[in-house]
């Protein structure tokens, strides 16, 4: 896993916060591969095409400055058109930091994967630094035959510090129906977040969501993975691996081992 890097801000941030947007569109290139007719981002978003693998185009978000800071409003839109395949990653962890005004930062991601398109969305973790307040939303709309692998990891506090406030909602619709909807809410001001029902002292939490049409006919069985993780099939063609862990490394180990196991399952379809 890439170590988190807080890059230095080149310009003093506007006290009201940065407003920035990035957009990715992936479409078939007509030669069996995937083109990126739109790849644009401003402010903290620098998007780079980083080669590809077979039909898949790969895009990396390169951290251009520390973000989100309190008060920032960031939006990221990605669309994968029918027949295209996209992989998205970030070069470093995203660190939520306190802003000058105490206003929360927002980070909204909208993802659209058409029927017959594939997306692997594998960003590095979001780290909630002490004193920060960030609200993220990720809304994914999947066509009936769309394939998705999505990883989401949250780390509460940098090493040895208490966390900031983190609210994160992930909503996935499949063929127009709700498939997965979950809000996580941690840190000061989130009642009971560290009690035995929610995190019980763990500081890293994450999940891997896999949507594949073949799960419709051949759903995976639910299965506990030790005391702090589980594989759970959703009420739809999807499976979620959820885990809590002491830290980011331990969390990634669990999710990575399942990513490779799930890849084997999917290849066997």
């Amino acid at each position: 896993m890439t170590p988190p890097v807080a890059l230095v801000t080149a310009l003093a941030p506007d006290p009201a916060g940065v407003v920035a947007a990035a957009r990715i569109v992936a479409a078939p290139d007509g030669r069996g591969g995937t083109a990126l007719p739109v790849l644009e981002g401003g402010g903290p978003f620098a998007l780079r095409r980083v080669g590809g693998r077979g039909a898949e185009a790969r895009v990396a978000l390169v951290g251009a400055m520390s973000a989100p800071l309190g008060g920032d409003r960031l939006t990221l839109d990605a669309r994968v058109e029918a027949g295209a395949a996209l992989a998205f990653s970030t070069t470093a962890a995203t660190i939520a930091l306190p802003g000058r005004t105490g206003a929360p930062a927002t980070y909204d991601t909208r993802i659209d994967v058409a029927d017959g398109a594939a997306l692997r969305w594998l960003p590095e973790p979001l780290i909630s630094a002490h004193g920060s307040d960030v609200r993220t939303t990720t809304r994914v709309a999947l066509g009936a035959g769309a394939r998705l692998l999505l990883r989401e990891e949250q780390v509460l506090g940098r090493a040895g510090e208490p966390p900031g406030r983190l609210r994160s909602r992930l909503t996935i619709h499949h063929a127009g129906r709700p498939l997965f909807d979950q809000e996580l809410n941690y840190g000061p001001g989130a009642p009971g977040w560290d009690g035995g029902a929610v995190l019980g002292g763990h500081r890293a939490v994450g999940q891997l969501v896999v949507v594949h049409p073949a799960f419709e006919e051949r759903p995976m069985a639910a299965r506990p993975l030790g005391a702090t993780a589980a594989v759970t099939p959703l009420a739809g063609p999807a499976v979620v691996v959820s885990a809590v862990a002491r830290d980011a490394l331990e969390l990634r180990k669990v999710l990575d081992s399942w990513a490779s196991e799930l890849n084997d399952v999917i290849r066997a379809f």
Binding site: R169, L184, N185, A197, G200, V205, P224, A230, T232, S242
Partner: peptide, 16 residues
């Protein structure tokens, strides 16, 4: 609202 508790979801499968 859709607030979730990771440990409740994870331990439910073990308990079952």
């Amino acid at each position: 609202p859709a607030p979730a508790a990771p440990l409740l979801d994870i331990t439910a499968e073990q308990h079952a």
